[in-house]
């Protein structure tokens, strides 16, 4: 059996269509991860002991349970609590909420490297806590944590393949389906690998660009 580019060429439209779902899960997950991660991080270092414990519990749960299990839990459990979400929404939520736990810890680590004096300077000037976070701490934490955040986002694209277990026709699932029809796993999975790789190449390129732009001081 020879390697056939024709098989790839022929099935490329289906693979690319499936990659759109991969992108949707990844981008949706990223958005949730970043926004929710900032709040989680704030909770994790908050002075309120209840909020702090809740955030710590959340983080240890989502870091400690396999994402595959979380995905299945979300998919099967949400209807029980009255949330009948389409599979794609459950997948995006699961991926994003899990990733947020890591994002929160990345940001917390970055925040710890910002000298306490910067906060004191803001307090001495009478700058409100919200402005302190919005204008001084978060922008720097993102800048410092950027390499790790990009890492996390790349990981997120890869774990989007797990959404195949809840029946979403994303890249991995469709590749399997096509393989089942064509009996050409090598060609199809190489093509899928290249598509994943290209998506992540774009993300790491954007990450480098962002690092350059934020590079001051």
């Amino acid at each position: 059996m020879n390697f056939s580019f024709e098989v790839i060429w022929h099935n490329l439209p289906y693979l690319l269509a499936a990659a759109r779902w991969t992108l949707l899960i990844s981008l949706g997950g990223m958005a949730i991860s970043l926004v929710w991660g900032i709040f989680l991080c704030a909770g994790r270092i908050s002075r309120g002991s209840v909020i702090r414990s809740l955030a710590r519990l959340y983080i240890s749960f989502f870091r400690g349970v396999p994402l595959l299990v979380q995905l299945l839990m979300f998919y099967y459990m949400l209807p029980y609590v009255g949330l009948d979400l389409p599979a794609i929404a459950a997948a995006i939520l699961a991926v994003g909420m899990c990733s947020a736990a890591y994002t929160a810890e990345i940001l917390r680590g970055a925040l710890q490297t910002i000298p306490a004096g910067q906060t004191e300077a803001a307090q001495a000037l009478g700058i409100p806590t919200l402005s302190l976070w919005r204008r001084i701490l978060v922008p720097q934490a993102i800048r410092i944590g950027l390499p790790s955040l990009v890492n996390e986002l790349i990981l997120l694209v890869k774990v989007s393949s797990l959404a195949s277990v809840v029946g979403i026709g994303e890249l991995t699932r469709i590749s399997q389906n096509i393989t089942g029809e064509t009996y050409r796993p090598l060609e199809i999975f190489i093509a899928a690998a290249v598509i994943y790789f290209l998506i992540n190449l774009v993300i790491s390129g954007l990450g480098r660009l962002a690092e350059k732009r934020l590079e001051v001081g």
């Binding site: 000298p115 004096g117 004191e120 300077a121 307090q123 000037l125 009478g126 806590t129 001084i136 720097q140």
Partner: peptide, 23 residues
Amino acid sequence: GEALRRQRQHIGMVFQQFNLWPH
């Protein structure tokens, strides 16, 4: 916090390590 911030506006402070915001 609000009342303390109002008081602190009248008291300027300069630190040993400058504590400028680098970004």
